[in-house]
Every structure is written in structure tokens, then in C-alpha cells.
Design a protein around this nucleic acid. Structure first.
Lengths: 291, 291
DNA sequence: CCACAAAGCAATCATTTTGATAGCATCATT
DNA sequence: AATGATGCTATCAAAATGATTGCTTTGTGG
């Protein structure tokens, strides 16, 4: 019997592709495999034969259409993670590096309107990995364009924008910068001072445990519980303090102390807000009032 | 000289990996390659040699650290799409099928709190591809649990949830259903009637051209223009009518006729709303009033 | 300052994987 | 019943890969 772990990289990819097509498309022809991997017919037959060995009851050939069909007894050979699958369907297969893409028109991801340049991302990621400072021009919403030197240690998406979390030499504190508002980012070769390293970013390293519950104003709470896979009506999450405000805004979580926000479409309430103390990050959160 | 298109699938993957590491991490060791692809040392040397042939000036070996470093003259061999790169950094490499994952802790995507089951997605996608109806139990926010037969034709993410767009035999119209609120989804084998096919979903096939502009209340509009890569202060988009409302809500676009919404953090205004006519989908959009 | 260890490199050969071809089987279509 | 399209298997040649060896470079520790 064939052992999954002993199969080489390329063939494993092809087997995974077969498995995927059966489960998420329902059928598969030899031509699909040949097209996708630019492989020969022979190796294609070999792959199908091997797949049949691994999972004899997963597919049957229908000669009417000359395609393999998923059977009702199908058991996936590979555990496909749901988010990864959806990404594959939306953006096509392949790892996004070599372009073996074939996006599905039937699976449409949310629209990202903000696309940082890959140059900027590359510079930031290299600086992060090599602990270097970056000089750049930054246009802020409040103060307009300024020249800055920042020491980045992570990048994060807040649901809309990609931010870089960095020590700002101008304000002498850790801040978020929107990646698309950076221009002329350049790595500075001299090593950074210790206090500017990510380890000293308190709000980043402070992990808060928050409790989200269905908002009392919702009339069929079960629907929301199912959305969030809630266990006993509560969703516990670990969140970096630096990112909490964004998360609350992204999910439109009522952050008032008594769930009094009545703005439409508010499905969640931050139940344990009173235990969290005063948090600057929450100033952008829906319904938040200090106290 | 080696020709990129003539290189086989497996080696192309490895070359892309080298290219990626140099550009987004800054360095790469032979061990990284071996680890990632579980390949032998020999083939690893071959890949590096070939990469040097393809791009002689992209990397240099530093013996101090025994790693290859990106040079200042680096020119990517593969065009990496920014979104794909960010996904690779956040979730690790590989196509999400075979798990060759190694996510970066320095690159954090926004938190998706709602994860549809891969079983449900699989059933829906198969039904879509094979034009089948699906029976299921659905829990709606307004009417609670009901049994339904729907004919799905696409799934889409609205920024928060995955929806399935489908003909609903109960209400006899096309609607959106939240994937996580579906239970016991089962394909029905009999073929669907023609009028229930996706082709007849008017709101889905009606493509609107919308014009988004920086909200007049923003004090440094250049920052927003850069975020959205605006051309002359306007961002023109083609959007399905069925998805327009979600898009407006996701990006918090002021949909009032005169940009009068003053709610904090509203960076965009839907400039041509007056030309779009009456749209039911906009009832959920910020600031929208009929008229 | 020299020996050593660690990593990279190049060459070689055995093994594995792949591609191409040919002949046969199956089944829908006509 | 003939035809054509596709799938299967077997075979052989070609290509890719893995393992081994001996060599080079360079940093490190004595």
C-alpha cells in the first residue's frame, strides 16, 4: 500500500489537486490534470491509478462524459483547510509564485481596494527580518507629508489596510503606519538600537483575552452563534492590544459598557470590556466611552 | 541560456521560492531550500546554480553566515503579485493543499472570525458546477430556522461573511444566504429548471460602474488617494449590483447624495450615486436615503 | 597563527520519475 | 456495426533527483 508521506513533492501536489477537484468541483478529467501541470498523459494515468489505490471508493469513471466523478462515499485524502480552499478557488491554484492560475468565476472574494506596492512590502519585510531601520516619506491624515525614520517589526492587515508596526524616531514611540502612505522606503544599513526593537513594543506584546457575545438586540441569536462558531454563546479570543481597536471596528463590535449601542447591524458585544481597563486603542472602537 | 518556460514544474517552484526569499526575506541558505522541499543537497545546489544563471547579479554568498544575500541590483525573476505575496507570508508557502506551511509571525493578516465548514463549501461548489439544487436548513436573522431548497450559482465574500448567491424556491427569487447559517446541505440529483439558473439573476449580472472619490471632510486627501491608488482623485470600479451594498458597507463609503455623512472615519464618497438610480441593495449602505 | 568544523560546490553514478509511443479496451454516437 | 474519442497498460528512452566523494572557502577556537 502506498504511503502518503513517501510520495515526492510533485506527485503529492498532483494527488492533492485530484482530491481537491473531486471534492470541490465534483469531477475531473485527465485533460484537466494535463492542462494544469503541463504533464504527460502517461504520468497523469499513473497519478490517477495511485489515487485509486489510496482511495478506492472516492471516484468512478463515467464513460458518457469521460470524466471521473466523486462518489457519495468520498473521503478526502488531504485535509483541506476551508480558508485555503476558498483562496484557491478565488485566486486559482498554485502558490501565487509561479502562475498556474485559473480562478473560478463562481467564487468571489471580498474586494480589496488597497494594494500596497510589492516593492514597499519587500523593503519592509527585509528590514523586519534583518532588524534594520527604514527611511521614508510618509503622508499622514493628520499632519500631511513628513520624512521619517522608522524601525519596523511587523506588518498587519486591519481588515482594510496593511499597516506596518514600527518605532518612530520622530515621536519616539511605537506606531502604526499605513503601507500605502509610505514612499521611497529604503533600508538603512546601520544596526538599530536595542530599545527600538520590537521587543519593547508593549502594546504589541500585550495579549488580551476578550469575550465576544451575541448582541442582546439580535432576535435570532442562534444565527450569530453559528456564524462565529460560538461555544455556549461566547467567543473567546486572544488579541494583541495594538490590534484590538481595529478588530472591534472591523467586526462592528459594540464596545459600550452595557451593550447600549443601537446602530444597525451590530451583532456582537465586547462583554468583558470592564475588565480590560483603559485602552487607548479603543478610541476608534464603536460605542466606546472611557469610564 | 536557460529558458524559464522550459523548466519543469517542481524546479520552477523551487526557483520561485529562491526568488521570493531573496526579495522578501533578504537572504536564503541551502538548508532553507532543503527544509522546505525535502529535497536532496545535490538538487539544491543545482537549483542555486541555475538561479545564478538566470539572474547572475541577484545574490551573493556571504561566508560569514553561509547564506545567500540579495544584492542591491536585485531584479525579480518572477513577478510576484503583492496580494499573493502577503498571503504567502501570512499563511506560509504551498498552495494550501499539501501542507508545506511556515507562516511568518511578522506578517499578520486580518482576523477572519467566520469560518464556513469545508463540507458546506464543497457541497455548494459541486452544486454550482453541476447545476444542482441543494436542500438545507437555514437559520435567518429575521425568521429563524426554516427548511429550504435553493439553487446556488456563486459564492462571494462580503468582507466579513461568505455568502452563497442562490435562487430560493420559497420566496421565488434570488437571494444571499450566509454559508455558516446553512446546515445539512445536500445536493438534489434532479436537474434544475432553467429560470432558476444563475443566468436569470438580474442583480448579479447587472454590472454598475461606480465612482469613488475622497470624502470632502478629509483634510489630507493625498493620503487617501495613495491608499486607493486613485487616478485624478477618482477610483472607478465595476461592481455587481448584488454586491454593491456590501462593498459600500465594507469600505464605509458615504452614500448620501451630497456627501453629508459626518460619521467618523468616512474616507470615501460614492460620487455618482445620483446616476445609479434606485437600488434596493443600498439600503444597508452608510448614509443612503432614497430620493 | 593554524587546525578544525561547517557549509558550499562540482562531478559522478545509481535510482526514480517522467515523457512518448503503441496497442488494447470501453462506450457514446452515428 | 463502424467510428472516434478517451482511458488504460506496458515498454523504453530521457530527464530529474539522491547519494556519495573530494575539494574549496571561511570563521572560530585553541
Amino acid at each position: 500500500m502506498a504511503d502518503l508521506t513517501e510520495i515526492n513533492y510533485a506527485q503529492r501536489e498532483r494527488l492533492a489537486f485530484i482530491d481537491f477537484c473531486l471534492q470541490f468541483i465534483g469531477q475531473l478529467s485527465r485533460a484537466d490534470l494535463v492542462n494544469h501541470f503541463k504533464t504527460g498523459l502517461a504520468s497523469c494515468s499513473r497519478d490517477l491509478t495511485l489515487y485509486k489505490e489510496l482511495a478506492p471508493n472516492n471516484m468512478t469513471l463515467k464513460h458518457e462524459t469521460k470524466q471521473y466523478y466523486r462518489t457519495a462515499e468520498f473521503k478526502p485524502v488531504y485535509e483541506h483547510n476551508a480558508e485555503a480552499i476558498l483562496a484557491s478557488l478565488c485566486r486559482g491554484f498554485g502558490d501565487g509564485l509561479s502562475h498556474t492560475v485559473r480562478p473560478s468565476e463562481k467564487c468571489i472574494d471580498s474586494t480589496r481596494l488597497i494594494h500596497p506596492s510589492s516593492e514597499t512590502i519587500a523593503t519592509l519585510m527585509r528590514a523586519i527580518n534583518n532588524r534594520l531601520a527604514v527611511s521614508c516619506d510618509y503622508i499622514s491624515l493628520t499632519s500631511g507629508e513628513t520624512s521619517r525614520i522608522i524601525v519596523p517589526h511587523a506588518i498587519a492587515n486591519n481588515g482594510q489596510r496593511w499597516h506596518v508596526r514600527a518605532y518612530d524616531q520622530k515621536s519616539k514611540e511605537f506606531r502604526d503606519f499605513v503601507c500605502t502612505r509610505l514612499q521611497n522606503a529604503t533600508e538603512l544599513k546601520k544596526p538599530i538600537s536595542n530599545t527600538q526593537s520590537g521587543n519593547y513594543d508593549k502594546e504589541w506584546h500585550n495579549i488580551l483575552t476578550i469575550e465576544l457575545v451575541v448582541h442582546p438586540s439580535v432576535s435570532h441569536p442562534r444565527a450569530i452563534e453559528m456564524d462565529f462558531g460560538m461555544d455556549g454563546g461566547v467567543l473567546r479570543l486572544e488579541v494583541r492590544e495594538a490590534l484590538l481597536g481595529y478588530l472591534m471596528r472591523q467586526w462592528n463590535v459594540d464596545c459600550s459598557h452595557n451593550a447600549t449601542l443601537t446602530l444597525g447591524d451590530c451583532h456582537l458585544w465586547l462583554k468583558n470590556i470592564s475588565e480590560l481597563g483603559k485602552l487607548a486603542c479603543l478610541t476608534i472602537a464603536p460605542g466606546y466611552k472611557e469610564g
